[in-house]
């Protein structure tokens, strides 16, 4: 089966909020989070969505 929507990575500044069983990138600041997300978006060919100010997810659509 082809996966239609899938969380490829999670980028967060708040480790408590990160989900289990997913690739999580912990960041120290919002700027670092933005930079990492920009890179990951291009590398993984997914879309970066913001769930809150503290947590981004990269989703393959």
């Amino acid at each position: 089966m082809d996966l239609q929507k899938f969380i490829l990575a999670v980028i967060t500044t708040n480790p408590k909020k990160a989900p289990v069983a997913s690739t999580v990138f912990h960041c120290d600041s919002k700027e670092e989070m933005d930079a990492i997300t920009t890179n990951l978006e291009a590398i993984l060919d997914g879309i970066a969505h913001a769930l809150s100010d503290e947590i981004y997810i990269i989703v393959k659509h």
Binding site: D34, T37, T38, E41, I47, A48, H49, A50, Y56, I57
Partner: peptide, 9 residues
Amino acid sequence: IMNIGLPER
């Protein structure tokens, strides 16, 4: 329409 995370985008 959709959710866009990055400020740059």
